[in-house]
Amino acid sequence: MTESTAEKVQEERRDLLKWLLGGSLVAWIASVAYPILAYLQPPKQNEVAVQSIKAGKLSEIELDSGRIVKFGTKPVILIRTNTNELKAFTATCTHLDCTVQYSKEKGIIWCACHNGQYDLTGRNIGGPPPKPLEEFRVLIQEDEVLISKNT
């Protein structure tokens, strides 16, 4: 009688342990496998390459226009002049860090915050900016416009 109960208890315990072991093993595998599988999911965003960036297709950039592109964590302004030249400068105004834009009417780079003006070589020609804009190099590969740091 007592032996059989003891055995029964033993049996029950074994079952419990089996469940515990199995369950925690599954939980463990899940907690290890989940991060790894998630890690292997390619991220939505393209991988960074900050030495140079693709700024879009040349055919999509209008003549006599400018656009802001992201260069790493900094904005860069790409300008296609009315003489069909491509120019790129850092788009951070040297006055108070606003983002500059291309002014079609005047043919200059212009900052909306305090009317800072730069000519198309990046030189500060009017308003408060104390320094010229840093120029970037623009390359065209087939139809792709590439902007890279001027080294």
């Binding site: 991060p35 790894i36 998630a38 890690y39 999911q41 991220p43 965003q45 960074v48």
Partner: peptide
């Protein structure tokens, strides 16, 4: 910063 759990790995 971009890869899920990349910081952890």
């Amino acid at each position: 910063s971009k890869v899920q759990f990349g910081w952890l790995i």
